[in-house]
Nucleic acid binder design. Structure first.
Length: 278
DNA sequence: AGTGCGACCTGATCGC
DNA sequence: TGCGATCAGGTCGCAC
């Protein structure tokens, strides 16, 4: 499931392949993923533009596109759970569930594929993302200095939700999903069901440091491929070999040997070691 | 206001 | 073997 490291791997792999390319043609096979625009409006907004930048905010991929009037617009792509954005030769067969194809000036194609159609592509004219609630209220980038122990403690100290839910809250910190939230809690030695307001300053500082450490490692490994995830060249990630708790229910904890447990918190399965996490 | 939870969607897997 | 139920999870929208 694409979280920050996976989206960063897509971004960094796509950037050299598509930056500077002209968008020659856009084909929409399924209008769901470009809502609320119609296919015609979506294609018209992108065709003849030049791809100028490939950036990322949290789990959002932000492709800068300059139209023929030199206006800088933004194409946002959110992969949600099963989305893939791959640049490949037009001669390669189209995968099942390919919903949008962007043909570039060099003949290659950017293909948006998503089995479950949760993913979205949205155009923001002039790059103004304020109309998108999720993007407009996104918390700080976890790998930047804006995300500090002091900031994190301020956001958590009065919260009554369980810490697992807070880690998944994109308005507090951007980019964590279910896999890395569980891994961060294990690394920090904090149980996922702890209520945020009961966390000490030291625990919040550890959580902050572990978020940075785990995400940075996963970025280096080019993400975690559990099932569907691939980068912009169709390659799998390597971080799945380093997971400590996610999807390891009943398997022995690598630190203490006791069984990893699983419970539902905030509607999501949470994996933890009841001995190593307090 | 803050919090919790179902809906969205389809494929894989499980149990009978 | 086959069929239905359940689960996976990021974000939105609604209910309390």
């Amino acid at each position: 499931m694409p979280e920050l490291p996976e989206v960063e791997a897509v971004r960094s792999s796509l950037e050299p392949l598509i930056c500077g390319q002209k968008i020659a043609k856009v084909t929409v096979h399924h209008e769901d993923v470009i809502a609320p625009l119609t296919s015609m409006a979506f294609c018209r907004a992108l065709e003849n533009s030049i791809i100028s930048t490939v950036a990322r905010r949290g789990k959002y991929l932000l492709v800068g596109v300059r139209d023929d009037a030199s206006r800088e617009n933004l194409l946002m792509v959110h992969l949600r759970m099963t989305g893939q954005l791959i640049c490949e030769g037009a001669e390669r067969p189209l995968k099942k569930h390919t919903h949008v194809v962007i043909t570039l000036g060099n003949g290659k194609e950017i293909r948006f594929t998503d089995v479950r159609r949760f993913g979205k592509m949205v155009i923001f004219p002039g790059g103004d993302v304020s109309s998108d609630h999720g993007l407009a209220t996104l918390g700080p980038e976890p790998l930047s200095d804006d995300f500090s122990p002091a900031y994190f403690y301020e956001r958590l100290k009065n919260k009554k939700v369980r810490v697992k839910a807070a880690l998944l809250d994109q308005g507090i910190v951007a980019g964590l999903g279910n896999i890395y939230a569980d891994e961060v809690l294990f690394a920090a030695g904090v149980l996922p069901m702890r209520v945020c307001s009961t966390l000490s300053k030291a625990e919040v500082k550890r959580l902050c440091q572990c978020i940075k450490k785990i995400l940075a490692e996963a970025v280096l490994h080019k993400g975690t491929t559990f099932r569907d995830y691939v980068d912009g060249e169709g390659k799998k990630g390597g971080h799945q070999d380093f997971l400590q708790v996610y999807q390891r229910e009943d398997a022995p904890c690598y630190v203490c040997g006791r069984s990893i447990q699983r419970v539902k918190i905030a509607g999501r399965s949470s994996h933890f070691c009841s001995h190593c996490q307090k």
